[in-house]
């Protein structure tokens, strides 16, 4: 009898714990769906609900505040979504808030978001209110756009790749700049020269300064020179001549520039020789022809050696050659 009642107690414990787990499960699930709590029924009308289902979450500023209760067609373009919002949150939501349907992450289910309105304050929602809705880009659309963007990006990178490739292989000005070592060297040398020049210029200036400081204006030749007006005149003519000379030099250098430009462009025989690839080809061909001709000539000569008529002559030549070697 005793063991029997002990068994029944254990059985009772098992059954009750099973029921408690079940009830808790039901409670938590129901709690999530706002079946037991005090809630407010609010609705909103959409053109497209993007696969929203009853039971999906309703969020206000990102916090779960309720669930979608029912989705029904009003007419061919309007769908009414009823949602249950718990009263606590309902007391915070204004009736000019906006409802929108988004997806909960890329692979998530849909969520009905309520966005607080930034407009003038208005009363909180109450049972049966209808919230204004805004339609948002659905995930699919978003993905489409993303796809386009991706394609464009791919094209862009392809072009970029081409450009960098050609730069690397030394095509174009940029390529030249990057690749040409002599240019770089020249630039470096120029900079060095410049550096040296400025150094010596500074030294020169310092010396000049010293000289100028040492000049006794009144008692020296320099003073005389500087104060003598006739000397001044001749001095200025010298400078003028110098000026002339420099302008002539300038003219020459311009001419030289033009000449070199002409050289670079396709005018002139020299340029023709340097630049025309067909000329080079001709030249090449001619050289080949000459080579071939000499080769043939050689052959002919060889054949001649073996000819009966000329054999004697060639033997004689050989003999003379051998004799000369012996004498040596």
């Amino acid at each position: 009898m005793k063991s029997n009642s002990a068994q029944n107690i254990k059985l009772g414990v098992l059954i009750i714990s099973g029921l408690i787990i079940f009830t808790l499960g039901v409670f938590f699930i129901g709690n999530k769906q706002n079946l037991f709590g005090d809630s407010i029924l609010v609705s909103s009308v959409f053109k497209n609900v993007n696969g929203l289902q009853s039971g999906n979450n309703v969020r206000y500023s990102g916090v779960n505040v309720g669930t979608v209760k029912e989705i029904k067609f009003l007419n061919d373009t309007a769908i009414c979504v009823d949602m249950l919002i718990n009263r606590e949150a309902g007391n915070l939501i204004k009736n000019n808030a906006l409802a929108t349907i988004n997806s909960d992450g890329l692979v998530g289910s849909m969520v009905l978001n309520i966005l607080p309105s930034s407009q003038a304050p208005s009363p909180t929602i109450k049972e049966g209110d209808t919230l204004a809705s805004i339609s948002q880009v659905a995930t699919a659309d978003m993905l489409n756009t993303l796809n386009k963007t991706n394609e464009n990006a791919a094209l862009l990178t392809q072009d970029l790749l081409k450009i960098t490739n050609s730069i690397n292989s030394g095509e174009g000005v940029l390529g030249d700049l990057l690749k040409d070592k002599t240019l770089a060297k020249n630039v470096q040398e120029s900079v060095e020269n410049l550096n040296e020049t400025t150094k010596s210029a500074r030294l020169g200036l310092a010396k000049l300064n010293g000289i100028l400081n040492n000049v006794d204006y009144e008692n020296s030749v320099a003073g005389l020179l500087l104060s003598d007006t006739s000397a001044q005149k001749s001095f200025s003519t010298i400078i003028k001549d110098l000026e002339k000379t420099s302008s002539q030099i300038k003219g020459i250098s311009v001419d030289l520039g033009e000449f070199s430009n002409n050289l670079n462009s396709e005018k002139g025989a020299l340029n023709y020789v340097l630049k025309d690839s067909s000329f080079v080809n001709h030249l090449d061909q001619s050289m080949e022809n000459i080579e071939e001709a000499t080769h043939r000539f050689n052959e002919n000569m060889e054949a001649l050696k073996h000819n009966i008529l000329f054999r004697g002559y060639f033997r004689k030549l050989e003999r003379q050659k051998a004799r000369a070697e012996k004498e040596n």
């Binding site: 068994q7 059985l11 098992l14």
Partner: peptide, 16 residues
């Protein structure tokens, strides 16, 4: 009822 409870115990608690 007694047998029912006994069987419940046998099946439930003993399989737990």
């Amino acid at each position: 009822f007694r047998e029912f409870l006994k069987q419940c115990y046998q099946m439930g608690n003993k399989s737990l």
